[in-house]
Design a protein around this nucleic acid. Sequence first.
DNA 1: AAGCAGTGGGAATGCGCTTTCCCGATACAG
DNA 2: CTGTATCGGGAAAGCGCATTCCCACTGCTT
Lengths: 380, 380
Amino acid sequence: MAASTLTEVARLAGVSPATASRVLNGSARKPGQDIADRVRQAADSLGYIPNAQAQGLAKSSSGLIGLIVHDIADPYFAAIARGVQEAAREQRKMVLLATTGGAPAEEREAVAAFAARRADSIVIAGSRSSQPENQEGNAELAAELDRYCRNGGRVAVVGHPVVGATAPEGYHVVAVPNQELAAALAGKLASGQDGDFVIIGGPDGLFTSDDRIRGFQEGLAAAGRKPAEVLRTAFNRAGGYEAGLKLADMIKARQAESRQADSGEEAGRGKLCIFAVNDVMAIGAAAALREQGLRIPRDATIAGFDDIETLRDFRPALSTVRLPLEEIGRLATRATAPGGASAREPGENGSGSTEAGPDGGRQQPITGEVTLRRSTETTA
Amino acid sequence: MAASTLTEVARLAGVSPATASRVLNGSARKPGQDIADRVRQAADSLGYIPNAQAQGLAKSSSGLIGLIVHDIADPYFAAIARGVQEAAREQRKMVLLATTGGAPAEEREAVAAFAARRADSIVIAGSRSSQPENQEGNAELAAELDRYCRNGGRVAVVGHPVVGATAPEGYHVVAVPNQELAAALAGKLASGQDGDFVIIGGPDGLFTSDDRIRGFQEGLAAAGRKPAEVLRTAFNRAGGYEAGLKLADMIKARQAESRQADSGEEAGRGKLCIFAVNDVMAIGAAAALREQGLRIPRDATIAGFDDIETLRDFRPALSTVRLPLEEIGRLATRATAPGGASAREPGENGSGSTEAGPDGGRQQPITGEVTLRRSTETTA
DNA sequence: AAGCAGTGGGAATGCGCTTTCCCGATACAG
DNA sequence: CTGTATCGGGAAAGCGCATTCCCACTGCTT
């Protein structure tokens, strides 16, 4: 038994389908009270549920918002997804989920699928990359997005613009001031730490990672410290863990050396200050250090970035940069709404590193906050 | 400029829309090679993307899978969502997400929305409840689901059947043996602990919680231990935290008492063994204890349930019951696939506590595993 | 050589709904 | 009292596609 149709409802109510449509779905024309009641009652008794596909086809709009993430089980994306979901609800739309693992090819595919479903807008979370092996994929993704926008779709990208997107109407960027925040973090850390800094970064070419690394180095420089060594690894927990293992060796070597040299208690001298470009990596690194018998912040300090919810119960409490993840999701989604706000990020483009297309699209200002916790406490 | 249509492609290729349709979308009839090439080329040059809405309308099927969770940012649901997403990909479908906070009324709404979109199947995660204030909502949810199934929809519920669902064709349950596993956990814990047990449970009437509590008590009884006291609280971290505060007081009182009585080192005598019905609550409780200056497992032991990914980096390592969350999501989704497996849970219905409708629907067997970790170690 | 199944393509119909467009009826001004 | 707006409802034309039916044609068989 297929679901009942509008026509059936209309027949039962003794009116035309047109009228039934007008009363059941918000139309400009409001039929008379008595008729409306009859129709509504008929619909009720039939358990009528409008066919959104047909509605969409007729109105050419679907009430769908497409969300693209790397991995929905990653707390970073999960938090953003929550925000998106919330905003979608405000707009009385549903969210269509696609997880891509970060591969541009799959992202392109997801965009195409969303376009096929005539999603009203698309939110892309997850950092862009300029790695050579992704070059082609990025170009195709950009082309797909452009086409989608040209056909009236609206897009919001979290973090960094899609490389090569020509920023047509309807293309928004929720810019995260990664660089500035990383610089601020470096500044604060530098004022409390006298050891050497090391950065655990993602693969070369990953914008989010690169921006944060660059910012951190700038902050260090501003504080008169020498640049940090950078370890490149995977942009996830496993990568952080791996780097942590290497760092553990390094730390042990330094400790031994230091002990030998001073034969005393000046072990703080060469203490390592680790900055992982995101929390998940920081957690991985911390786990590695712990397994190697090293303690934080005693043997090394460590800071992350994002302030994912998981951190709440992670010990030692991790210093990080608080990002309003949920809010980011909300803003991105709202930016794609028909009347969506679209204040362009005001102000200095800092080091002029925005290598977006001709135009980054409309931007949403986001503010983060450096949050120092136990993992970078030096005294006590 | 609206997206190009099949008709346009057909015209450009010099064929009829019918033919174009046949070559571009998997039809039984395969047009000639030359024609196919022409059509495909035309489609390419126009950047044709089939309108899934129209396809869905014509075929009356949407390629959509609806997923209902309480909160996508909760690691438990996120893990399940990942599995669902994966299985959806296998079926070349997309997942439509709805978060409801667990309110039956919102779940009903979500089901209706999915039905409107003609989702091919619906996966409902998140525990059912029989609380009186949800009574009505549950009934409506059940009715909505029934209707959806009657119209050919397929439903999979994770954990506990929806109360009152009359289990029509297409209604599946991925049964989690909460009770058995909780009993097993209790048994293992009882053999290593000599203190008193306390359970931090969710609100009365929440099936998942109640099943686990019941199972735990049974396990205790089987081990010859007296029943545990049960603290009822919210089924989330905040609830666990709250309960943890109370327990901290209790523990301190016992410690004082014990110290007075024996004036010695037999403090282990009255040590509390806490079982929280899920990991998130356990984490909340552990946080509360820590804040109160209590150490785990020294001052109290604690165990959770689910083995969410977050636990990996939580210290002390939390004893729990490992549930293959991702697999559960996958199985649930696969169960709703056209040819989906649907082996009925074989075997004993234990304490006859399955208060589902006339029939629980087809079931998927799930196995969990008691996992003891540091948080319940008594010696050392 | 005529009849046949088989093949490959096109015309037409319908999926369920929205939205003009149209028309009769009522209300109002002149 | 007639002419013109206005309102409330219905008929019909799509929205973009799949699919059934139909037809022209090929390559066989007997």
